[in-house]
Nucleic acid binder design. Sequence first.
DNA 1: CCTTGATGGGTAAACGTTTCCACACAATCT
DNA 2: AGATTGTGTGGAAACGTTTACCCATCAAGG
Lengths: 348, 348
Amino acid sequence: MDKKKSISIKEIAKLSQVSVATVSRVINNNGRFSEETRKRVQKIIDEYGYTTNMAAKSLRMSKSKTIGLIVPNIDNEWFSQLVLKIEKYFFDKNYSVFICNTSQDEEKEVAYFKTLDSKMVDGIICISGIEEIPTNAISRDIPIVCIDRKPKDHANAYYVESNHYSGGYLATEELIKKGCQRIAIVSRNKTLSVNKQRLEGYKQALKDYGLKEYTELQLLLEPSEANYEGARKIINQLVKEGIAFDGVFATNDWRAYGVMVGLAENNINVPSDVKVIGFDDIFISHSCHPSMSTIRQDVSGLALKAASLLMDLIDNKEIQVDQRRFILPVEVIVRDSTDQKIEKSTLD
Amino acid sequence: MDKKKSISIKEIAKLSQVSVATVSRVINNNGRFSEETRKRVQKIIDEYGYTTNMAAKSLRMSKSKTIGLIVPNIDNEWFSQLVLKIEKYFFDKNYSVFICNTSQDEEKEVAYFKTLDSKMVDGIICISGIEEIPTNAISRDIPIVCIDRKPKDHANAYYVESNHYSGGYLATEELIKKGCQRIAIVSRNKTLSVNKQRLEGYKQALKDYGLKEYTELQLLLEPSEANYEGARKIINQLVKEGIAFDGVFATNDWRAYGVMVGLAENNINVPSDVKVIGFDDIFISHSCHPSMSTIRQDVSGLALKAASLLMDLIDNKEIQVDQRRFILPVEVIVRDSTDQKIEKSTLD
DNA sequence: CCTTGATGGGTAAACGTTTCCACACAATCT
DNA sequence: AGATTGTGTGGAAACGTTTACCCATCAAGG
């Protein structure tokens, strides 16, 4: 293996008989040079396949044309969709996106913040995760935008999120409208602001419709179990304990699917015995059987808002105070899992 | 916003009253220094929260502790699983992984190769995609390992893949064993080596079992349509044209799901009228209805082999010729979509 | 007491950029 | 003609590391 080495500006300069300064100016199309030299230099560049050494450029410029993206779980379709939209936005703007999958591990998140910092990223987007952003892991002054994650000091933070409160309300309302009286919520424990808000919406809807709040129906899973499998288990347990319920609001589609599987294992029919609604509207919600009602978030809107906000911050644009935070509306998608109104609950 | 600036080795040196050389030696634990200075320097480092400027380090060392990962579509669960395992492997080895989603766009892939090159990545893993690796986009001499992608010049290439030929064979055999006589294949057109091999396996199985090969049942979709939706459409068309078939081998689970939806739309029952088998064993294959038989690939094995191979190459380890290519076995997963043997085909 | 070798640590060059400054020359204005 | 402005270009410093090379000190061995 003969070590190939990439050609540098200095060599380009020698070959085209100008100074490195001029070559740099030509490459970045910045500063003054004659059309004639431009051609000559460009010719050599093309001929030798010069590419910028980004390490050197970053070092000199203290920026890297790269943004960092902190995401909890890229194998959750909801997150991968977001990631993809964000990546596309920045690719078109000639920025690279450094994707950091934290697997919901706080230590890993901190480690990634440090890495991003030392790699000189020009900005960071954080998706979900805990409210505390480890800003002390960052030594430079770079903009951070959050999605579905409300940083500790709201006041001068930048974030965009769905209206989770409204989502929780609408989901619960849908179940109520279809005749459910004892509605369980399957969520994650209170570390995540999005789940807190969905829970609040749920409670408010119960209250507004005059339904009782049963604490034994508030099932808050531990993070490690807050997925499909955890939801399945907890529903099994609920049934075993003989606690009555006729509706379940699961705060994401994976959990909702787990709920549906758990119900099926106990021969409880959806939607005739128990109705189920999820959150996110990922593919599984319409591929499962029966198809699942859910709350749809505007994934493109979230991605685009967050990305363009960060871009503006990087470009040092002045951001109006009312343009620093966005709450996007959500939408109920009614499918089979909440089909048919129960006129009279069998639970009464 | 007052511009924070990260502290440099030079400043650490001044504060701890040693030279930059010594600080560097302490940081990298390389070279000679007394225990006493180590302590003094480390104290300052901790106190001021020094982090390495990777741009400078990369520039000096011509490497970056980063590897590039080229992947077609991160929102396909199969790929995101691979990505995640690879990321974990390298995270533990203190390497970062730069994930590049090509969206199956060749131009984008080339662009990303150039980016990776200019970012000085220490190695690249390419997942799937076309056979031609744009090596001319790379100016340095870095190792490349492929997964499910057989580079043009096999001879001295590094790759690991599943046994796709065997997978195609087993899938077809499963349908045949369950009594199917006219088996369609829904795949992608021949740009991808994995699909070519699966097709070959399919053909061989037909031959071995004495079944006729019907060209009108070889449905090869264009890349842009080679997904769920494309499969759904083509099945609808097949039915409309009145072409008979009683089994479908779809070369991935998304396409298989599209097939099942298409069949359902035409009131064709799975598995009693037509049996279906997919490939990959992603979540949807057991969450759909009826649950789907499929070919399971060893995702962990693929990820681990590829990652450790690349790691060895980066570490300049000598790789035996027989350790440069790995073909991993696949496994048939039988579920409801190929349940029940048809004793006598209704097509006869 | 002089040599030798080990130990700890400093100096400075190099990595590939960008950009400030200076300078030469030409064109234009007074 | 002299002053001014504009245009194209080059020199060199700076960004933050690593490391080859050098030097000082000290202990041990002759």
